[in-house]
Each structure stands twice: as C-alpha cells, then as structure tokens.
Design a protein around this nucleic acid. Structure first.
Length: 424
RNA sequence: GGGUCGGUGCCCGAGUGGCCAAAGGGAACGGGCUGUAAACCCGUCGGUUCUGCCUUCGAAGGUUCGAAUCCUUCCCGGCCCA
C-alpha cells in the first residue's frame, strides 16, 4: 500500500483544501511513515464538534501508519489566535487554562491510539517549551527570522489590522509562537507535517518558513476546509450553545439529535468528513437516502457513527432509544421507559409540593423551557406548550393526575424542546 | 496630551426633548405546511400581580411638567494630530 493513499482518501472526502507542495508530500509519505501534528486550543474544559474534523484527520493518518501528535495549546491558549476572529480575545488565567488543558487532553485520548505498536500517538502541551522561553530568547531565536512585512501579509493579521478595533501586539505575535511549536516538534520529534483548518494556513506556513530559515529543512503543511452548513448557520452551534464532546455539557442524546437534524444538503459531506466509514459505503448510504429522503437513513447513520465515536456504543444506543421513544406520546410510555429517559433528555428532579398544584407557567420557568413567566405565557398562548404531549390551551396548575406513573411529567415546548420532571 | 466621531434591546442599526419599551433587519422562539430536512406563510420576541405598573438606550449627577434625546463629570472605543 503506497503511503500516499492517505492523500487519495482525504481528497475523496473533500478534506484537502491546501498543501504546501502536494507532490513532494506524496513522495515523502511513500518513503516512510511520517510524524505529523495538529494543535487544539484549550479555550474551554471540553472540545466541541468543531474539533472532530482535525481529530479524525489525525486518526486517518494514524490508520495509514503515520505517527500523530496532538498538541494542547496551553501556551498559545494564553495568547489567543487571531485567525478567523474579528475581535480581541479575553485572556485566560492560569487556573482556568490548567483545567481546560486537562479536560481536552482526556478527550484527545479517545480519538487516537497511544499504544499502537510502531506508530503510537503522542500528546504534548506547548507550555512545556514555551513557558521557559525568555522574552530575549524569543526575540533572538524566533523574531529575528521573521519580518513584520511577512506577518502583516498573512490574511488573519491583515483582516484585523484593517478592522476598526485593530489587533493587539499580543495576538499579532501569536503566529510566532505557533511557528515555534512546529520548529520545536520538528527538532525534538522529527515532525514534518502540520495539519489544521484552512484558517490555520498562515500560522502553518509561518512555522514552515521558520524551520527552513533556521535549519534549511523543508517540511509540509496541509489544511482542510472549515466545516460549514448549508443554511449558513455556524457549524457546531445550536441555540443552546456549542455542541460539546463532554457528555456532562452536551448529553449523548442531545448530541445524537444534533446529527439527526442534519440538513439533506450537508449529510453526505458530514458522513465523509466526520465518520470513518469507507467512501464507498458513504456513497451507498447517500444513494439510499436520495431514493427515499423521508426515511432519513443517512442522518440516522451519521448520528450513530459520530455518537459512537465520541461517546461509545452503549451511550449511542441509549441516545437512539431516547430519540425513538418520542414516536409515541409520553402517556403511553412505561415507568421503565420514562426512567430510562431521565438524565438522557434534560431532566429536573423536584419535590412533590414543587410540582403538584404549581402552575405550568412556573414549571416552564423552573425547567428552563421558558426564560420568564411572560415568555412561558406567550408560549402557551401560541399553542406551543404540551404536558405529556397534550397541548395546553391556557395556564393551569399541575394536578396529581398529570403525573405519569405517579412521578413523571413530560413538558414540551414546540416540537423539539422537551424536559422531563421527576418527582422525588 | 490635543482634536474629533461614537457607545441604543441577543447582534446589526434607526431615533436626537413628549406620539419611545424605542423603527428596520438578522438571529431566536412558537404556530402552519413537512420527512425530527429545506423553502415558504403567520405570530412572538425587557419584566410584571398586564389595556396599568416597573426597569432599560456606556456610568453618575443635573436641567425640565417630561430625557435614549439637552448640560456636567467620568469610563470605554475608532479616527486624525502631537
């Protein structure tokens, strides 16, 4: 198997946006396994699904025999990458950053194989070599090799320089730190390829230039297109916020639902880029879906694949069951089925006096389904509120008879916003 | 440091003494149509004990019967000059 088949695979999946010298990279990959890296920003305690794509590309490389390094940007995270940003970032403090790095490192572990013989994955934190660097060392060893002219020419910087609010020196310097990461990994880990989203192009080439100037070595860079959605909304964001990989922040059920709701126009690309399914299989699924779009098979397959990848097969099965449970009205579900739903969908446990005799309006607020009592009232007036899947025409107190099996209450606002109340 | 322009609801953005809880757009939410898709149509979108009352237009004071709109000071940002 030629090493460059990974390139063909990435191409077939539409994952190749730019590469520094694709032919040279192919030749290099054919020669012998390569060490490559990709950076992940610890901007939160968890990664979100935007990181799925780079994570899986690393994984694809590893399955082709190459050695991936996942870099947690503990140092660069303190600076803030200006790429794709219109405004200055807030700086994170040490403690927050520590917690964030810890969180994402645990997640990175799930996607790569650290024990694989021959090409085990590695995990690094750029604080290890960046923190000890003095300002003077940095200016002499990195800054000296780069002209401000080149830096200003980078798209990420140019956009911000021309913007109203400008760019701080701190963020301006970001690309030098990333360039230094690449150089460090090149020197210490023999890393020869950096990958990233297309917004990382400027940062990646900065590293390549730095390596060439300081060691006359030619290394590679490769980017993939940023995830977009057909309807123009931001990938990975819902009304509730980001879709996280951490099950405590986004439950497997919510995660599963995110993919189930995928637009027809996006589903093929997502299957190709966010799952490990072979390309031919994706095409077969897509063909079936085109023939019978109302069956939503492609969305279901996508949801299954991605949820299993992130949360495991068991969690995925439970999520899918919860998702399917809604085909029947809540009133028909057994006590066991409702119990299984608890925790899977948004759930609130309340004492009996907090439910019985309490107005639906207050319960909607209590569960977060409505932001205020006015909001709750308006939702009821608009015909959007259901108790146990029965539409409520007007506000009313909840009665003991409403409690399914004596302790469950299924509140629903609109088609998709469900909340289970459990009486303790 | 000087000058100048600006800071309005989730975002953009109109408003420049009463008719302003504040135009318009976007996002969001609800309803309808659907396939848990898209498009489209309709409605809602500060709070509330709801034809009223309360809180809001960077912050604090002031003028006025009445201020998002005028004045003062302060804070923050853009641009120009030094």
């Amino acid at each position: 198997m030629p090493g460059s088949s990974i390139i063909d695979d990435l191409t077939a999946r539409g994952l190749l946006q730019d590469a520094t010298d694709l032919e040279a990279l192919r030749r290099r990959l054919d020669e012998s396994p390569i060490v490559l890296y990709c950076g992940f920003d610890p901007t939160a305690t968890s990664l979100h699904i935007g990181s799925l794509l780079p994570l899986l590309v690393l994984r694809r490389f590893q399955e082709h025999g190459h050695r991936p390094i996942a870099l947690a940007g503990g140092a660069t995270g303190m600076i803030g990458d200006p790429s794709g940003r219109s405004a200055e970032r807030n700086l994170l403090d040490d403690a927050t950053l520590d917690a964030n790095v810890q969180g994402i490192v645990a997640q990175l572990r799930r996607f790569l194989d650290f024990d694989r013989s021959g090409n085990p994955a590695r995990l690094v934190d750029n604080r290890d070599w960046t923190a000890p660097l003095s300002a003077i060392d940095f200016l002499r060893d990195v800054g000296k090799h780069v002209t401000v002219n080149q830096m200003l020419a980078k798209e990420s910087v140019k956009a911000r320089v021309e913007s109203e609010s400008g760019i701080s020196f701190t963020e301006f310097s970001y690309m030098l730190l990333q360039a230094n990461d690449y150089r460090w990994l090149h020197e210490h880990e023999r890393c020869e390829l950096q990958i990233g989203g297309s917004d990382q192009w400027g940062n990646i080439t900065a590293g390549i230039d730095l390596i060439r100037r300081t060691s006359a070595q030619h290394v590679h860079g490769l980017t993939f297109p940023l995830m977009t959605k057909a309807d123009g909304t931001k990938f990975g964001k819902t009304a509730a916020g980001a879709v996280w990989l951490d099950p405590a922040l986004t439950s497997p059920y919510e995660f599963f639902q995110y993919w189930i709701n995928t637009d027809d126009r996006d589903v093929r690309r997502f299957l190709l880029q966010l799952t490990l399914l072979p390309v031919e299989e994706v095409e077969a699924v897509v063909a079936a879906h085109t023939a019978a779009p109302d069956a939503r098979e492609a969305q279901r397959r996508l949801a299954r694949e991605v949820t299993t990848l992130v949360h495991g097969a068991d969690a995925c099965r439970e999520a899918e069951q919860a998702s399917a449970g809604f085909r029947r009205p809540a009133g028909e579900l057994s006590a066991d089925e409702l119990a299984a739903l608890a925790g899977e969908i948004p759930t609130t446990a309340l004492a009996r006096p907090e439910v019985e005799g309490v107005d639906v309006v207050d319960l909607l607020v209590r569960t977060g389904l409505a932001s205020s009592r006015s909001d709750a009232r308006r939702a009821i007036e608009g015909g959007g509120v259901n108790i146990n899947d029965e539409r409520q025409a007007a506000p009313r107190p909840v009665e003991a008879a409403d409690l399914l099996h004596g302790r469950y209450l299924m509140l629903r606002k609109g088609k998709k916003h469900r909340h289970l109340v459990v009486v303790e």
